[in-house]
Amino acid sequence: MIALENVTKRYGGQPVVDDVSITFGGEGVTALIGPNGAGKSTLFGLVGRLLSPDAGRVTVDGMDVASTPSSELAKVLAVLRQDNHVAARLTVHDLVEFGRFPHSRGRLTVHDREHIESAIGYLELGPYRDRFLDELSGGQRQRAFVAMVLAQDTEYVLLDEPLNNLDLRHMTEIMRLVRRMADELGKRVVIVLHDINFAASYADRIVAMRDGVVVADAPAREVMRPDVLAAVYDTPVDVREIDGKPVALYYG
């Protein structure tokens, strides 16, 4: 279980995450939604030990993030940030291999290799394994990053806007994959999404943030209501039922 207790993070006196207490890990897929600047990425940074909170405590399976060795946390928690620019010329296989680093510390065992192979297979990257990352399309590259996270073989997986800059097909592909990771592999995925309809159709639970605080936290269907969404995004959102699924319309 990932638990935040009264966590606050300020930038220049301004709280970006304001006294937030929440737990993740009870559901397969949790979507984190909210407008730009709501504090979603900061929250991920705090859980992923890239930022330290000004107040409060973050624990993963009872381990305090601030005091537990980073190498231990890396075995239970994987974070993929948004907009990953990798300058180094690495192949897909190299990248996925580095996902095993918390377990192998650079010396790969047979067990590590099995994980690498299955991650590459799971994301169907077999044909591209020897390609350099800069020779891949955006969708393929994003899959390679997800494969790396998968090879890390952690119970908790945090994905920060993994659908950025992807076309419709690749977005759907990634979301299906996230669902499979939860259902078939038992992962606990927390995913930041901008498209609330993706959140509604793939997530078990939706957490909405605004101005550094959690304003809604409920099963997907309960958050998909015009009044809730309008309050989160400060813009009118209509919600219609299509084939029994709630669909948000916000195109004006």
């Binding site: 992923g48 890239l50 974070v79 580095f98 650079g106």
Partner: peptide, 18 residues
């Protein structure tokens, strides 16, 4: 291998427990 991981950037390196 540590230098390769560092080459991915601080965020990747931290995530991998380095």
């Amino acid at each position: 291998d540590r230098f390769s991981v560092i080459g991915l950037g601080e965020e990747f390196a931290t995530n991998l427990g380095l």
